[in-house]
Design a protein around this nucleic acid. Structure first.
Length: 264
DNA sequence: ATGGTGGCACCGCCA
């Protein structure tokens, strides 16, 4: 008997503003684990009750107004922990656990604002800290998924205008190199594995631009990265563009992957 | 052409 598993990531841009969409999406897609970023709510205000009433388990790590992460799942997660835990001042950007033997690491990587800013330096350092975090806690042989808004488009085909966006913090050579350094540890881009060379596959569109979907003015910055045992177990991956056409959509949409795992 | 929208804060900040 093999074990089927559907795992997804979604930058909700406020879990409270997007709660109905998230719950109906979970109900209709048969997803086992959903990693959420930008929950934008402190833990005491997190909407646990409606999520539990929908039959889901949830863990969360947040603050007022900005950032924040959560994981919704059909069965409870084990070994839940938050933060990078490297002794440096931390923000609510990382939550992790174990789902049926799969290590799940959900992150909201700092955006970086401007390539010339201290915020971009902080982003690059955060990615470096995350690489050290993976080395400390796991091995490339661990069945592990790193999901989230990673705020990095890995390749030219992952942005709508690579020439114009060359210095943008989400497509900057230094940001892509920092992401690559983490992947060199032993992680594979699951979506790209199933869609090599496929252009116009985006997970984020800026609210501030008009007709973004029609113009295909997007970015692929939300990712499902897998260690080798998980990558080999993946059977499909896709981006749910339909969900970006909801009534009050987030500026991001759901990225999903299916896995067919050997028995534990 | 150097804007625009959205969310949450609290009357600006962040994306």
């Amino acid at each position: 008997m093999t074990q089927y598993c559907r795992i997804a990531t979604f930058n909700a841009n406020s879990i409270r503003a997007r709660l109905e969409q998230v719950l109906s999406w979970m109900a209709t897609t048969e997803t086992d684990v959903l990693c959420v970023q930008e929950t934008k709510v402190q833990d005491s205000e997190f909407p646990v009750d409606p999520i539990r009433e929908a039959g889901l388990s949830v863990v969360y790590h947040g603050q007022k107004a900005h950032a924040g992460v959560a994981i919704l799942s059909r069965e409870p997660l084990e070994q839940v922990d938050t933060g990078l835990r490297d002794g440096e001042p931390d923000e609510p950007r990382l939550i992790r656990g174990v789902y049926r033997g799969i290590a799940i690491v959900n992150t909201y990587v700092p955006q970086g604002r401007d390539a010339d800013s201290e915020y971009f330096q902080y982003k690059l350092r955060w990615l470096e800290r995350l690489r050290a975090f993976f080395e400390r806690h796991y091995t490339p042989k661990t069945p592990l998924l790193w999901l989230g808004d990673l705020n990095v488009a890995p390749e030219p085909i992952d942005v709508y205008d690579p020439k114009r966006l060359a210095n943008h913090v989400d497509y900057h050579p230094a940001a892509r190199a920092a992401l690559q350094r983490i992947c060199d540890w032993g992680l594979v881009d699951v979506f790209r594995r199933h869609h090599p060379g496929e252009a116009h596959q985006y997970s984020y569109w800026d609210y501030r631009m008009r007709n973004v979907l029609e113009r295909r003015a997007g970015w692929r910055v939300d990712h499902i990265m897998a260690t080798r045992p998980m990558a080999e177990a993946s059977t499909a991956a896709w981006i749910d563009v339909q969900a970006r056409m909801a009534d009050r959509p987030s500026d991001h949409t759901f990225v999903v992957a299916d896995f067919d795992l050997p028995p534990r």
